[in-house]
Design a protein around this nucleic acid. Structure first.
Lengths: 249, 249
DNA sequence: ACCGGCCTTCCGCTGAGCGGAAAGGAGACC
DNA sequence: GGTCTCCTTTCCGCTCAGCGGAAGGCCGGT
């Protein structure tokens, strides 16, 4: 078959699919992409991407910023309309501010999304620890505070899947299933989880569950440079917030 | 020409364009749409929309929620990657919290976008006034606090265009160009703007400019049920915040 | 029973889309 | 200045993905 002639190397593909592939090329760590980078990441030939991207820029879905492409204003607008745990976020917002005000640490609100943690909200402190997460991003469960809380209360099936593949992120990441399993028991017993430089060097976290009915619906956490003797104070602040959020659900 | 036969009623149209038309059917006031509503608002025939929407749902750009369609998680993720005044928002975030903490009112951060106001951030109070705006939405300039501030410092050309079409929104909306012009002079002189039920009944606002270099880059505001004698206190709180934000730019 | 509104499936026509080929930059290295 | 590499952009002829009118199914109202 000498070159598949004319068009579509992959029959069955749709334009909408290609458009989403182009948009999907952007992520947390790739907010600016050149044309060829998009092509590579989307698995499409450069000329095709060139045309699509041109179209998308014309419609405001993407924007050109000096050399490279970035996600456009239009898509920001539209994306904000998505009902992603809207009630939870709205209920939580004031309490997260309270926690921030009293601790001045970075504050997180997250839910479980499959086998990962989805960050819904992040309040970054004025002079806070370097933190990887931001609203909209996902991180693994086994090395984040919110992750441990959500994992401790997740269905058995999720837990065993996650425990089966504990990727090392820093030298302090817990990668032995037995150790993590014992930590999770403790999380259930004591009502909070901690991490110590397991995701990012120089960052520790404390997290507590937010309950809706009997279920754990979300987790709130703070990130600080070190736990030391602040632990008790942070747990209390978070529990007050979690309680308040739960009441409003 | 008896029915235009076969395909595309409108030649020259592209699929990417149609996709954006479909996504553009959603807005602030239309977060849930039925298939036929999308078709109407996008100006496309229902079968075409049916196919596109199906595709988009498969890719997570839209989601089906019982009967109707809503914007999907995937688009939320991607939209959050847009560099929409990122540095401004990050610089402002902690100061907005401070204002919220001290006033317990709804706090806004906005910039001018053409002849309208674009809301970048909204901190909604626990028990706050009904407010129309939310992050991502745009409102007219002449009847919002942030709008008046930004209009007072906008290029002459923008100002005259806006003054030329003052739409009435509530019985208290200022629709006489002369009156508004005098208010704007005062805004420049005194350093803050106010509105009294000009956009929403039962909501008043106070706003101050945020400067970057010599330019006014943004505006911060609070929304309260009534101004009364709080005005001075609110202006001060906002000015402190605006000063802090400006310092970080 | 009938009507009006939705959603959905069908299907034949066709031009929008495709992407290899090749031409135009912009650097980097020798 | 020449050559190499990598990226962007234009060209263009071949099709198949997309189109949307027509028609069928479903519900709720009258």
């Amino acid at each position: 078959m000498p070159a598949m002639a004319g068009n579509t190397g992959t029959p069955g593909a749709t334009v909408a699919g290609r458009v989403m592939a182009v948009l999907g090329a952007f992520d947390e760590h790739h907010r600016r992409l050149t044309l060829s980078a998009i092509a590579r990441r989307a698995g499409l030939p450069p000329p095709t991407v060139h045309r699509l991207v041109g179209e998308l820029v014309r419609h405001g879905a993407l924007a050109r910023e000096d050399g490279a492409y970035v996600v456009g204003r239009r898509l920001w607008d539209i994306g904000l309309l998505a009902p992603v745990q809207t009630t939870l976020r709205e209920a939580a917002s004031p309490f997260l501010h309270d926690v921030y005000a009293t601790t001045l640490a970075t504050v997180h609100l997250a839910v479980r999304d499959g086998d990962e943690v989805l960050y819904l909200e992040r309040l970054a402190g004025r002079a806070s620890v370097p933190v990887v997460s931001s609203a909209g991003s996902t991180l693994p469960m086994h090395c984040t505070g919110v992750g441990k809380v959500l994992l401790a209360h997740a269905p058995e099936e999720v837990r065993s899947r996650v425990l089966g593949s504990l990727r090392r992120v820093t030298p302090y990441t817990v990668t032995r299933p037995g150790v993590l399993l014992r930590q999770l028991e403790r999380v259930r017993r004591e009502g909070y989880a901690t991490t110590v430089e397991e995701m990012t060097l120089g960052a520790c976290s404390v997290a507590v569950p937010v309950r809706r009915g009997g279920e754990v619906a979300a987790a709130v956490a703070v990130v600080v440079p070190t736990l030391k003797r602040d632990r008790g104070r942070l747990v209390t602040a978070l529990q007050v917030a979690a309680q308040g959020i739960a009441r409003r659900l």
